[in-house]
């Protein structure tokens, strides 16, 4: 299983021809307790850098950006009902799965080791 990390503190896990996206433990700690998650509509076509999710914590609102070009095929409705999952299990609390035309887009992202160096 391949897992990659972005500079925006997202994790990307490859499942077949899909990429599953969540936020890192570091990001969830920085955000604080998450109280609201707004998910995109399945079927939405997105371009890299689009703001596609909103995460509201007790402190502030922040966005999840589309890490690559593709199409949202599934979202994790459990997060709408229980946003605290993002803090409890950041690596398990996926936000959306996207179909990616060109998996090579993922090569540019950091490995787990590189990400650990990145957050210092």
């Amino acid at each position: 299983m391949t897992i990659k990390f972005t500079e925006e503190h997202e994790w990307l896990r490859v499942e077949g021809d899909l990429v599953v996206v969540g936020i890192t433990e570091h990001a969830s700690e920085q955000l604080g307790d998450v109280v609201f998650v707004e998910l995109p509509e399945p079927g939405t076509k997105v371009a890299k850098g689009d703001e596609i999710c909103v995460i509201e914590s007790v402190k502030a609102a922040s966005d999840i950006l589309a890490p690559v070009d593709g199409e949202i095929v599934e979202v994790n409705e459990a997060l709408s009902d229980n946003p605290a999952l993002v803090n409890e299990d950041p690596l398990g609390a996926w936000f959306f799965k996207m179909k990616v035309e060109d998996m090579e887009q993922l090569d540019a992202f950091m490995s787990e080791e590189d990400y650990k160096d990145f957050i210092g």
Binding site: G32, D33, V35, V58, K59, N87
Partner: peptide, 9 residues
């Protein structure tokens, strides 16, 4: 601003 318990708790 907060302790390890976190704002919510």
């Amino acid at each position: 601003v907060q302790y390890p318990m976190g704002v919510l708790k």
